[in-house]
Measured scan of single mutants.
Amino acid sequence: GPMASDKRPRTAFTAEQLQRLKAEFQTNRYLTEQRRQSLAQELGLNESQIKIWFQNKRAK
């Protein structure tokens, strides 16, 4: 629909990254900035991508 703007492409996470994020989520529903930074480095992701993933996951 018209609401779907092309400005922010959805990140396609790899299965491996998703597995890691899910495991982290089961341990911590809320990430500290430090955890998020190390996860971002570990997974080669953007911190904001991880932050948003957690927000979306909590919203469900």
Rank of each mutant, 00 (worst) to 15 (best):
N56Y: 13
R35W: 04
I50G: 00
F13R: 02
A23P: 00
I52L: 10
L21Y: 00
E33A: 13
E47Q: 06
L31E: 06
Q19C: 09
K51G: 10
F54L: 02
T14K: 04
K51D: 13
Q41C: 06
N28T: 05
L21V: 01
Q37W: 07
M3A: 15
E33T: 10
E42L: 05
Q34M: 09
R20P: 00
Q37M: 08
L21T: 00
E42W: 03
G44P: 00
A4K: 04
T14F: 02
A59V: 08
L39P: 00
T14Y: 02
F25N: 01
G1Y: 05
S5W: 00
E16Q: 10
E24D: 02
Y30A: 05
R8T: 15
A59I: 11
A23S: 10
E24F: 03
Q34F: 08
Q17G: 02
K22Y: 12
Q19V: 12
Q34K: 11
L31C: 05
K22H: 14
L18W: 05
Q26K: 10
E24T: 02
R36P: 02
Q49P: 02
S5L: 01
R10H: 13
K7Q: 14
W53L: 03
Y30L: 08
F13C: 04
S38K: 12
A15L: 08
R36F: 10
T11S: 07
L43F: 03
L43N: 01
P2G: 15
Q49W: 09
A4T: 05
N46D: 13
F25Q: 02
L43R: 00
P9Q: 06
L39G: 00
K22A: 10
L39F: 03
A12N: 12
K7G: 14
K57V: 10
G44W: 03
E42M: 05
E16F: 10
T27H: 09
L21E: 00
Q41W: 06
T14M: 02
K57H: 09
F13S: 02
R58C: 08
Q19H: 08
L39S: 00
L43Y: 02
I50E: 00
R29D: 08
K22C: 13
F25A: 02
T11N: 14
L31Y: 01
Q55D: 12
A4I: 07
R10I: 14
S5T: 13
A40W: 01
T27K: 10
G1R: 02
G1H: 04
G1I: 04
K51C: 13
L43E: 00
L18F: 06
T32A: 04
A12V: 13
Q17M: 05
L21R: 00
Q26V: 08
E16K: 07
E33K: 14
K57A: 13
T11A: 09
N56L: 11
S38M: 10
I52Q: 15
D6R: 03
G1V: 03
K51S: 12
I52K: 14
Q34V: 11
A4V: 09
L18H: 06
Q19R: 10
P9E: 10
R36M: 13
R29T: 04
I52S: 10
W53G: 00
T27S: 11
F25T: 02
R8S: 15
A59E: 08
Q17V: 06
L43T: 06
R20I: 08
Q55F: 08
Q17I: 08
R36A: 14
I50F: 01
W53R: 01
I52W: 11
R10E: 15
N46W: 06
F13V: 05
G1A: 03
M3N: 15
L31V: 05
Q55A: 14
K51P: 01
Q17C: 03
E33R: 12
A12E: 13
A23T: 10
R8L: 15
A15H: 12
E42A: 06
P2A: 15
Q37S: 10
K60C: 14
E16C: 07
K57T: 13
Q34G: 09
T11D: 10
E42Q: 06
Q37G: 07
Q37Y: 10
S38I: 12
K22R: 11
R35F: 05
L45R: 01
F54A: 01
K7E: 15
A59T: 08
L21W: 00
P2T: 05
L43Q: 00
L39I: 06
Y30F: 09
Q26S: 08
Q37H: 13
R58T: 09
Y30N: 10
L21H: 00
A23D: 11
T27F: 10
F13N: 01
T14G: 03
S38Y: 08
L18G: 03
N56K: 09
L43I: 06
Q34C: 08
L39N: 00
L21Q: 00
A4L: 13
S38V: 14
A23I: 12
L18V: 09
Q49F: 08
E33P: 13
R35A: 10
Q17W: 01
Y30V: 10
R58S: 07
A12W: 13
L43M: 06
Q17Y: 01
R29G: 07
A23M: 11
K51T: 14
K57F: 08
L45Q: 01
E16H: 12
S5P: 15
S38Q: 11
G1M: 03
Q49A: 14
T14L: 03
N46C: 07
L45H: 02
A12R: 11
F54V: 02
I50H: 00
E42V: 05
A59H: 12
R10P: 14
R29W: 07
N46V: 07
K60E: 14
T27W: 06
N56P: 02
T32K: 04
A12G: 09
A4S: 04
I52N: 11
E42S: 05
A4D: 15
Q37A: 14
N56T: 11
K7H: 11
W53H: 02
L18N: 05
Q34A: 09
L39C: 01
L18C: 09
Q41R: 12
D6W: 00
R8K: 15
R29Y: 05
W53S: 01
A59N: 11
I52G: 09
T11R: 08
Q34D: 13
Y30I: 09
Q37R: 12
R10F: 14
R36N: 09
E42C: 04
K57E: 12
M3R: 15
R8G: 15
L45I: 10
L45E: 01
P2Y: 02
K7T: 14
L18I: 12
E24H: 02
E24K: 01
N46E: 12
M3L: 13
W53D: 01
A12I: 13
S48G: 10
Q34W: 06
Q26R: 12
Q41E: 11
N28K: 05
R58H: 07
N56C: 13
N46G: 10
T14W: 02
A15W: 09
A23F: 08
F13G: 01
A40Q: 03
W53K: 00
N56E: 13
K51L: 11
A40T: 03
Q17R: 02
E24Q: 02
A59K: 14
Q55H: 10
L18T: 06
L39Y: 00
E47V: 10
F54T: 01
Q34S: 12
R35K: 09
N56W: 14
G44H: 05
L18S: 05
N28S: 08
Q49V: 14
F25H: 02
R58Q: 09
Q55W: 09
P2D: 15
K60S: 09
N46Q: 12
L21K: 00
A23N: 09
A4E: 15
Q49Y: 13
A12F: 12
A15S: 09
E42H: 03
S48N: 07
L18P: 00
R8I: 15
G1Q: 04
L39W: 01
T11Y: 11
K7D: 15
F54C: 02
K60L: 09
W53Q: 00
R35C: 05
A4Q: 15
R58K: 04
E33N: 11
K51N: 14
T11C: 14
F54K: 00
R10V: 13
Q37V: 07
R20H: 05
Q34H: 06
N56H: 08
Q37C: 06
R58L: 14
R36K: 10
T14P: 02
L45K: 02
W53N: 01
P9W: 04
M3W: 00
S5D: 15
Q34E: 11
G44A: 06
A59R: 15
L18Y: 07
R58V: 08
T32P: 07
R29E: 12
F13I: 07
F54W: 09
N46I: 06
R58N: 10
A4H: 14
T11I: 10
E16N: 07
N56V: 14
L21F: 02
R29H: 11
W53C: 03
T32H: 04
R36G: 14
E24W: 02
N56F: 11
